[in-house]
Write a protein that binds this DNA or RNA. Structure first.
Length: 540
RNA sequence: GGGCCGUUAGCUCAGCGGUAGAGCCGCCGACUUUUAAUCGGCUGGUCCCGGGUUCGAAUCCCGGACGGCCCUCCA
């Protein structure tokens, strides 16, 4: 967890950390890396006493470019219109689409993760006139801008092209306009039907003053303008932007050569890949992203992003794997190390720091948090599947003392996460189900185990145990008198009822089933003969 | 063609200049009640390849191979 602190140590003077996002599309889990990384940097600065602000910009003057987010009849009307000017979806009381989206997704998600930047809205910044001086400079130096595009990215802009996107006075679109002829006060612009594929301009021609929110700067200039306007000193970006000759290089050059200001320190961060592929809503690989945030609680989610260095890609493939349980286990291991408990394996450089920055509350009592009792995810996942088990009581017993209020909250959160996991990503091997018919796997029962099952059936005939503990005692008693090790006895029960060799606590499992069913299954399994089992392959 | 990242035990990964590590899996053993329990032990690795720097390299440098994502538009 050195990287954030190293960065914080390498700067001097007051700092302004910034991140921003266009409020459209789906926020998949991977796109939370930026906010988490910037939050960690801000916390690192704060913790070493550096005066620092943490800003988050909502680029709501950007054009709506995702038809899938609009009702069909609204597509023609609003594609290409600034998000701040698109109406909120039906049923929302937000004043516009951007506000609706941010209110629905950004605010709750950020809050959940303990990320609390100062939000600003670019539509307001533009409309306040605060950027006018920068817009003027960009237009005055349009040739420099064109040269930067050419030099840095080998992109040739049409002659006469100006770095400004007027908002069409006729149709309100910003994504379809092109401007020329800057006379020092106004530009001439055209709203073109075929400038971009995804939106259709109205064909309007006109002149306007590009100030006061009547026009927006194109992406790379907009970025650099923010740096100047807010005095931003640190801003990372995804590696797609940080590629050589890419967006970041262009914006850096614009900051230096047009706005005459050194660009902020960059932290290029890698993507989060699912199954070796970039998360992508359009390709469906990120479809489960929303669920990931529901299954992985905020601390573990922060941990997921903070554990590796920003420039390392994160491979996270929760579907049908033990990735989520392992994430919890690793988090718990770091918590243990922080609490001073002995842990196995290698530890990252400053485990206690990693743990601290993973906590939602930046002012949390770290030693107390680290010392809290954290039941293992995998263990809970089985307990939760046993009907009638009081998990909280069980955990108190395992801990050896009553759970504190904080531990109870933690437990409740984990149980919820476990349940969601079992419903969504968990591999079949993590789930258990009592088979309606004798499982084929019962063929693997040994003679000693069948004898045990038969003996247990006889024991049940004398009186069905009532509760889990009573069942558990009966199982042990019968196993002992049959001279069978407990492990073989339990294994027999799991094979007979679940078709697998392990499972949740057997006593409680049997107690939850119909006594008649249990008795029948015991006899059936006891009488099972290998010869009647699964046909022995094709012999070849 | 360019950028970044990765390549370490069967699997997932840590270690990132000083005698190869963890978890899971597998195997052996202990355990009469936390049974995916827990605890011991074992098996298992030319640390992608080739050069170089160094007393010493998985770790640094150069070159290469393979894999992933990105570099067009939009933001």
């Amino acid at each position: 967890m050195d990287w954030a602190d190293e960065l914080a140590a390498s700067v001097s003077g007051p700092q302004v950390v910034n991140d921003s996002k266009t409020p459209s599309g789906t926020v998949h889990v991977g796109s939370l890396r930026g906010p988490v990384v910037h939050d960690a940097i801000w916390r690192a600065l704060r913790d070493r006493g550096t005066p620092a602000r943490f800003l988050y910009g909502v680029d709501d003057l950007d054009a709506m470019d995702a038809a899938s987010l609009l009702t069909p009849d609204a597509v023609d009307r609003y594609m290409g219109v600034p998000l701040a000017d698109v109406p909120a979806p039906p049923g929302s009381d937000a004043p516009n689409y951007a506000r609706h989206f941010v209110g629905q997704l950004f605010f709750p998600t950020f809050e959940r993760l303990g990320i609390r930047p100062e939000f600003y809205w670019m539509s307001e910044v533009y409309r306040s006139g605060a950027l006018d001086v920068l817009i003027r400079r960009a237009l005055d130096r349009a040739d420099v801008v064109r040269d930067i595009y050419r030099r840095v990215s080998r992109v040739e802009k049409p002659s006469g092209w100006l770095p400004i996107q007027p908002i069409c006075e006729n149709c309100g679109r910003v994504g379809t306009t092109i401007a020329t002829d800057w006379d020092g006060e106004t530009v001439r612009y055209q709203c073109l039907p075929d400038l971009v594929k995804w939106a259709t301009g109205c064909g309007h021609n006109g002149r306007l003053s590009p100030f006061g929110g009547r026009a927006a700067l194109p992406w790379n200039l907009d970025w650099a303008a923010k740096w100047s306007h807010f005095g931003i000193t640190i801003e990372g970006c995804g590696k797609d932007l940080a590629t050589a000759g890419g967006s970041r290089d262009r914006s850096d050059a614009i900051a230096r050569d047009v706005f005459e200001r050194e660009p902020p320190s960059n932290v290029a961060y890698e993507f989060l890949n699912v199954g070796g592929r970039k998360m992508s809503t359009s390709r469906g690989t990120g479809a489960a992203a929303h669920t990931i945030a529901e299954v992985v609680p905020p601390e573990q989610l922060r941990f997921l992003f903070l554990r590796p260095r920003p420039n390392q890609a994160i491979e996270f493939n929760p579907d049908g794997t033990d990735a989520i349980p392992r994430l919890f286990d690793e988090f718990d291991r770091i918590a243990d190390a922080t609490a001073g408990r002995e842990v196995r394996g290698e530890l990252p450089p400053h485990p206690e720091r990693l743990f601290e920055l993973s906590l939602v509350d930046p002012d949390a009592d770290v030693p107390a948090e680290a010392a809290a009792f954290r039941p293992a995810f995998g263990h809970l996942s089985l307990l939760v599947q046993v009907p009638g088990v009081d998990v909280a009581e069980q955990m108190a017993a395992e801990k050896g003392s009553p759970l504190t209020a904080a531990e109870q909250t933690l437990l409740a959160g984990r149980i919820a996460a476990v349940r969601r996991w079992l419903e969504t990503y968990a591999p079949e091997s993590a789930r258990y189900a009592v088979m309606d018919d004798l499982p084929a796997e019962a063929a693997r029962l040994g003679e000693d185990q069948r004898l045990f099952l038969g003996a247990l059936a006889l024991r049940v005939d004398e009186g069905t145990p009532h509760a889990g503990a009573e069942w558990q005692a009966a199982i042990f008693a019968v196993a002992t008198s049959a001279g069978l090790p407990a492990g073989r006895a339990f294994g027999a029960l799991y094979l007979a009822f679940l078709g697998r060799t392990n499972g949740p606590r057997a006593g409680w499992l049997l107690a939850s089933l119909d006594p008649g069913f249990v008795a029948r299954r015991l006899r059936e399994a006891a009488g099972w003969r290998p010869a009647e089992a699964v046909p022995a392959g094709d012999g070849r």
